[in-house]
Amino acid sequence: MAQSLSAECTPLKVEYDSCFNAWFEGYLEPAVAAASSPDARTAYSKRKADEYDQKCGPVWEKYKACVQKAVKDKGLDVLLQQAREEHPLTEPPPLPPPSASAHSSAKTA
């Protein structure tokens, strides 16, 4: 796992990432399977969201506090705020139709 932008946050980051990855790996495939029924999806999502909060919430709070300070110390908080105003990205982007044609291209307009 890559380090944190501040060395002092790296131990918390590693602990948090391990927690998330372990949870996510158990979450993903049953979540795909549960998607066939809306009720099953909601029930599963609720249960797993609670489980995530319970398992990873405490270390997340500590890591978040550390990284928020580091972001501020590096002067990134202002840039982040501007970026969030320009592109909130609070919803998943719409799905573009997958292009079956050109496999790789670069062009200039």
Binding site: M1, A2, Q3, S4, L5, C9, K13, Y16, D17, F20, A31, A34, A35, R41, T42, Y44, S45, K46, K48, A49, D50, Y52, D53, W60, Y63, K64, V67, Q68, A70, V71, L80
Partner: peptide, 14 residues
């Protein structure tokens, strides 16, 4: 470096 600065798990949509 990589840092997660925000994360949410939607308890309705997953």
């Amino acid at each position: 470096s990589i840092d997660v600065i925000d994360r949410s798990v939607d308890s309705n949509t997953g």
